[in-house]
C-alpha cells in the first residue's frame, strides 16, 4: 500500500499543477507575479518530490527492503535509545478492518448530521459504535450513548451557543 500511496501523491501533484496552469495567471498584466505564481512553484516542487519519492518506494519494494509501515513515535524513540532497529521491537497485530468500520461510522455520522440533527445523529453513532466494539455491556452502552451526546449537546449548543445542525425534532 505504501508504494500506491506514493503513486497517488504523484497523481494529486500532477492534477494540482495541471489545474493551476490551466486556470491561474502566472503573471499579471503588469508583468508582476500573479495568482498562479506561487502555486506553480509549489506544484512543480511537489511533482518533482513525489515522483522521486515514488521511484524510491517502488525500488525499495522491488528490493524487498521496504518496511510497510511507519511505527509509532514511542516505538521509534525506544528503539533509538536502545540503538536497535525499531521494526525489530514491533511484533503487533494490526486491525485494518476496525479502521474501516470507524471510517464507515464516521462518514455515516457526518451524512446523518444535517438529516437527523446533532443530538439524534450523535446517539445513533454512539449506539452503532458501542454495539460493535463493546457488545458485552448492554446497559452501560445505552446509558453512555444517551449521556455523552446529551452532555456535548448541552456544552456546545447551550453553554457555548454554537449552532449545531437541527433535525426534524428541532434538536
Amino acid at each position: 500500500m505504501k508504494k500506491w500511496f506514493s503513486l497517488g501523491l504523484v497523481g494529486l501533484s500532477s492534477a494540482y499543477l495541471a489545474y493551476g496552469l490551466q486556470t491561474l495567471d502566472i503573471l499579471d498584466f503588469s508583468g508582476r507575479p500573479g495568482a498562479g505564481y506561487f502555486p506553480l512553484i509549489i506544484g512543480g516542487l511537489m511533482l518533482l518530490a513525489t515522483a522521486i519519492n515514488a521511484v524510491l518506494d517502488f525500488r525499495e519494494a522491488r528490493l524487498g527492503e521496504m518496511h510497510p509501515l511507519q511505527l509509532d513515535p514511542s516505538t521509534e524513540g525506544t528503539a533509538e535509545l536502545m540503538g536497535v532497529d525499531a521494526h525489530s521491537l514491533d511484533g503487533r497485530r494490526r486491525f485494518p478492518r476496525d479502521v474501516l468500520i470507524i471510517l464507515a461510522l464516521l462518514s455515516g455520522f457526518i451524512f446523518l448530521l444535517p438529516v437527523l440533527g446533532a443530538l439524534a445523529a450523535m446517539i445513533v453513532l454512539m449506539l452503532a459504535y458501542l454495539f460493535t466494539f463493546n457488545q458485552a455491556e448492554l446497559l452501560t452502552n445505552v446509558l453512555y450513548a444517551l449521556a455523552l451526546p446529551a452532555f456535548l449537546y448541552w456544552l456546545f449548543s447551550i453553554m457555548l451557543n454554537a449552532s449545531l445542525p437541527v433535525g426534524p425534532l428541532r434538536f
Partner: peptide, 10 residues
C-alpha cells in the same frame, strides 16, 4: 474513542 470522534466532528 466515541468521545474523541464526537468532539472532533461537532
Amino acid at each position: 474513542v466515541p468521545v474523541i470522534v464526537l468532539l472532533c466532528v461537532i
